[in-house]
Amino acid sequence: MSPRMPTPVEVGSIVGKTFRITWSDGHRSTCSWKALRLACPCAHCRGEWADGRTVDPSSIREDVHPMRIERVGAYALQPTWWDGHNTGLYTFHMLRFELCECVECTAARSARAAR
């Protein structure tokens, strides 16, 4: 991660329809709560050695949402989900470049995948 990594200047409400972040470079990210939960990077969800384990989508409710989102240092956000799961630290890099579902980022990702 570059030190000039953008940081969130505003994190949307946990009661919003989707997860929203406004970044220090002006970009606005959005991501569905379910996609965010499925992407949880913690060892419980991913395996301790990043062995390719993923979260089974059928194990997560469609209306999953966090109760709280906290900032961790200068690099990540930590949601506490409705069931108390809170071990995932979502790095700013991940939120900005891997999970963002805004029109622009989605288009850029599908263009990369097509190549």
Partner: peptide, 9 residues
């Protein structure tokens, strides 16, 4: 490590 946690060296 500094890179990973977004701390500027």
């Amino acid at each position: 490590m500094a890179d990973k946690v977004n701390i500027e060296v």
